[in-house]
Design a protein around this nucleic acid. Structure first.
Lengths: 365, 365
DNA sequence: AGGATCGTTGACAGCGCTACCAGCAACGAC
DNA sequence: GTCGTTGCTGGTAGCGCTGTCAACGATCCT
């Protein structure tokens, strides 16, 4: 009769064990904790598995062990460049690990997030990555009751559910405005779209900075719930100009908007930065190569994803980090669009030096 | 004793069945094929499940039924805007369905793709979406032996494994060049990065068009294996200018490169389109709002994803499409950057009309 | 020498669900 | 009246793997 096989002809653990001359449970251990086997059996099982081309049945494993190797990831948007960078960090960090990622899109809705969370938690994930700190109370309760590690990403705040990694959007916005003040600007406009919680906190930072300087004016703020785009940046800036005159600079809640503002300036023949200074947010790649180059607040998106994944893996394996909250910070990258004393050739050349960057395979842009 | 429960306190199907006063198997059927139950039992099971907050255990289901509701998706990059649009289409189309998406990144490596494919197929997915038509022979064999529907996306070609949805990159490039010819351009440069199979086919289309017109010159082509970026577009264009003079137009293999070329022109004070015409590829959002607006080849990326998902669902449910190959086509969107007779106010206004677009939630940008 | 400890191995009993087949009532065709 | 036929329901027997516990020889300690 030879080896029994399942209908589909699939190789089971039992076949591997038989070929290796060990019990199924020993073969099973080989895949979970090879060190527990004697070297002799280890090699026997290994070569048997190799020979038969054995691939474990994850469903059976999950059922028997009462846990999965699924990491749930909840993000609000698949389009936003910001999230694709974070995702890349997450996927890269999990590569080679046994964990598989289950990605879901909340579409910026905390109700949708709650629904997805319920779905995820029912499958007992090994870990969870959620975006932001603004969950519904119901979601919050579920997260706190969950018996798996959880990382909140994108921003930091009080009362982490478990672990948290991000930076202060409020402080980042304040730093951007401080830079504009340092360059002598006073009438700073704010252009924002989508207005999700993080953009809202950037706005809060802007408002606080302006109020502290005694320069706050509601009419300098233009926002919309519409999803962001370059085109929208131009349109919102046009609204701002129509409403208020004498603006000397604009802080944009993201880089797409900043690029749109730049184009709108060009269209109206407004000199940047001489007449209007522009500062964006996130420091996407194109900011360094536009004309003029655009100042932005650099955020560590890829690192946020990979660090979140790394923390999660550590925590799953029982090695919780000392410090559950990790602030990745930000950097104001000062470029031509906001520099009143426009630098000569030097800086321009420096900014142009790394023309061919991002060439690493692991970083996969 | 009341209802027995599993250690973790989870509600099992047996509990639901007990509360509903039916056998477990009847309760099971309710979730898979409600029509098979009498109306009375159906409502009883439904309210029992509701009351207990029952959520099925997917691992047990997969193990017992020997199939999963997992859709494997293999894409070469998480960063590229092109794929994020496709992914959005896929995720949106699967939303509300029982299927869950398992996404993996091949990093433009067909060997990596083969490895991932092996992994996926071992878990008997319900369906598979793979990128492109250039698989290893081993991958090809696995795909053909797979007993689930498969959709190849991003391009079309001969011999689909199963279903196929995309467009001809070769034809699209030829159309772009034809447009430049029609505008009176002759010395058309080509700028390409990453040079994956689809970019290669765009190059092939360019080469064929140039040869047909008797204008082909190897020195007009600049490519690199480096991943694409705006900065890189400028750098490659600079290379092209340094090597060859008299170029009157540039066809860029994607929009990022085109934007980089535009900035480089601005930096060098080259008038666009008067001195150099620019055509990009994909028609990303910013192409319509740059100054000047940039001509591009529009591709239906979101539709590609959603149509692939729709085809897959149909096929899984036994309704295979008549025509397994779907050509989504492309459109050359002519804008200022390639129009020799620059239009007056009219067209510009038209291009500016939909400043606030993409506002739908389902389209989630 | 006797007992304790360690490293290694195996038997058993499910995990929660569904495929398969059998059963049963109600109905109609012959 | 017998034989399907249809519609619905339930029993049995696993799916492939792992948690738990026990057993074993080898080594170590007192």
């Amino acid at each position: 009769m030879g080896r029994k096989r399942t209908k589909s002809g699939k190789i089971r653990l039992a076949e591997v064990a038989e070929l290796a001359g060990v019990s199924p449970i020993t073969a099973s251990r080989f895949f979970r904790n090879p060190e527990a086997l004697s070297v002799a059996k280890r090699t026997r099982v290994e070569s048997a598995a190799q020979e038969l081309g054995y691939v474990p049945n994850l469903a059976a494993r999950a059922l028997a062990s009462q846990r999965t190797e699924v990491i749930g990831v909840l993000i609000p948007s698949l389009t936003n460049n910001v999230f694709s960078d974070v995702l890349r960090g997450i996927y890269d960090a999990f590569e080679g690990s046994p964990y598989s990622i289950q990605l879901s899109n909340t579409r910026y809705s905390i109700l949708q997030e709650e629904k997805l969370l319920r779905l995820f938690l029912a499958q007992k994930p090994a870990g969870l990555i959620v975006t932001g700190i603004d969950q519904t109370t119901e979601s919050r309760a579920m997260l706190e009751a969950a018996d798996c590690p959880i990382v909140q990403i994108m921003e930091i705040g009080p009362n982490p559910v478990d672990m948290m990694i991000g930076f202060s959007h409020y402080d980042a916005a304040r730093a951007a405005i401080a830079h504009l003040f340092a360059q002598g600007h006073r009438k700073v406009g704010f252009v924002g779209a989508r207005m999700d919680p993080r953009v809202q906190r950037r706005l809060d930072g802007y408002v606080a900075a302006m109020k502290d300087a005694g320069l706050f004016d509601q009419r300098l703020i233009v926002t919309t719930a519409t999803p962001t785009s370059v085109t929208l940046g131009g349109a919102l800036f046009a609204d701002l100009l129509a409403r208020e005159s004498g603006i000397d600079s604009v802080f944009c809640a993201n880089d797409d908007l900043a690029l749109g503002v730049l184009f709108e300036c060009r269209r109206r023949e407004i000199a940047v930065p001489e007449q209007i200074a522009i500062v964006g947010f996130n420091d996407l790649e194109f900011m360094a190569s536009s004309v003029p180059t655009l100042t932005s607040v650099r955020t560590n998106r890829y690192e946020m994803g990979s660090a979140a994944a790394a923390m999660l893996i550590e925590a799953i394996e029982g090695k919780r980090p000392q410090e559950p909250v990790l602030d990745l910070g930000f950097t104001v990258i000062e470029r031509q669009s906001s520099q009143t004393q426009r630098p000569a050739a030097g800086p321009r050349a420096a900014e142009w030096a790394p023309v061919i960057q991002n060439d690493s395979v692991t970083n996969d842009p």
